[in-house]
């Protein structure tokens, strides 16, 4: 098993955090080999932001995504920048309010993650909703592993909010698939 995932969006959306949490979950809680790399522009917010995760049963040599199985996007500019990295039979997972793809021929799974996060009271957890949705759609990672990795990353006072956000994304996938 080898899966390549690329995340893309804008600085401030938690794109790098998403990749880090997924790779951390795979490496420490699912017992897989995982590599996480990141790339960001100089701006703290609003610049392009991307991260990459490779998960495998075997040792990973080349650490970058060559052809992504999954492209997880939270901005239109990220779609334009990274769609060429997606495999022919690859899958797009997007924030459906921010990334509109009427002409895309490949499978697109959408969730209004940013809007749902605002409804939960804090748009900062949009990326965690995306991760829950990702887990539900792809089934490549155990939800418990992801939640454990979220708790590694997030201060304790935000655990409850993040648990709610993660569950929201997961349930959205179950309801809409």
């Amino acid at each position: 098993m080898k899966v390549e995932v690329k995340f893309g969006g804008l600085g401030g959306q938690g794109i790098i955090t998403m990749g880090f949490i997924l790779a951390n979950a795979a490496a420490l809680y699912d017992g897989k080999e995982a590599v996480f790399t990141q790339d960001y522009s100089a701006e703290a917010r609003g610049g392009a932001s991307t991260s990459e995760v490779i998960i495998s049963d075997e040792r990973i040599d080349y650490p970058h995504v060559q052809k992504a199985d999954y492209l997880v996007l939270m901005s239109m500019s990220a779609y334009r920048d990274y769609v060429h990295k997606l495999k022919g039979d690859g899958v797009l997972i997007v924030d459906s309010d921010l990334v509109k793809l009427p002409d895309e021929k490949r499978k697109v799974y959408g969730i209004p993650a940013t809007k749902l996060a605002e409804e939960l009271g804090n748009p900062i957890v949009a990326n965690i909703i995306m991760l829950g949705f990702f887990a539900g759609v792809t089934k490549i990672i155990k939800p418990d592993s992801l939640m454990a990795a979220i708790k590694d990353r997030v201060p304790k006072r935000f655990w409850e909010l993040n648990e709610k956000a993660f569950a929201e994304g997961l349930q959205y996938a179950e309801k809409n698939l």
Partner: peptide, 9 residues
């Protein structure tokens, strides 16, 4: 620069 910012187990 790759190894410095890359994560592995």
């Amino acid at each position: 620069g790759l190894l410095a910012h890359m994560y592995e187990r």
